[in-house]
Design a protein around this nucleic acid. Sequence first.
DNA 1: TATTGTTATACTCTATAACTATA
DNA 2: TATAGTTATAGAGTATAACAATA
Lengths: 146, 146
Amino acid sequence: MDFDKPPPEPLASAPGFLLSWHGRRTAHAFAENLRQLGLKPPHFGVLRLIAAQPGSTQQELVERSMIDPSSMVAVIDELEELGLAERHAHEGDRRKHAIELTPEGERTLKGAQTIANQTAETVLGPLNARERKDLLILLRKLAGLQ
Amino acid sequence: MDFDKPPPEPLASAPGFLLSWHGRRTAHAFAENLRQLGLKPPHFGVLRLIAAQPGSTQQELVERSMIDPSSMVAVIDELEELGLAERHAHEGDRRKHAIELTPEGERTLKGAQTIANQTAETVLGPLNARERKDLLILLRKLAGLQ
DNA sequence: TATTGTTATACTCTATAACTATA
DNA sequence: TATAGTTATAGAGTATAACAATA
């Protein structure tokens, strides 16, 4: 898709379409920038969740990520193949895995976070600080938060 | 996906993620509501464009819709199967088609527009009129419009 | 019986390239 | 040679159901 041009009218006047367009554009830009690390957005999201709570089970990661269980298996498989995370034995329940970051996983997470910040900076470029703050507040309210 | 609950933190604090989430949620809600007419969002978008400029060629619809040429073929095929639009001969260039709405296409478009309005009303529910206006202005500016 | 993780599968959406008929 | 439309295909992303191991 071509996100260099703004969407044509009358689409650009429909809030619903604009939300959808921005969502796709933002996700696309982020995915594009993350590729230099060999990661996709779900990898980044899960790396962050593991870092926030090392030793989480896959179920717990599913609950905090909006990624379904079978996709989570694939994401963690890939993180293991990349040497960024590991499934460890879970104390007390042999069905569960305790997911941990490797040292390289922690380093990669920092790099990905930098890329995420740069992407946000680029995407939000047309807005000044005040407008960005307003937008975040509106989007959070729209999502039913606060 | 489950859009009933707001996205979990820390995702809900990242503007990029929120944009992406709202986009998917909005598109999902619209698609869900449109299904009662047997339509998908691209059908609605193209119906609107045909109504705005009857006799458009497929190329022209592609340019105004962000739908690529091969997908446009499929969309118009389906609109024809549904009896909502027709390919007519284009005067002066036999490669081109002049796309027209049928009377039923015009009726269905009105119904779809109503559904679009209801969906927007539901999605934007948490915001008051002032906030909706502000959001639209911010989203348009963010898209590089105006 | 219920839960955790896994596998296999199917489905939607989109993108790409090659083809035809016309210009 | 270039353009309009078409076809076939492949890829990404996601969803679903069935399964094994363990509780």
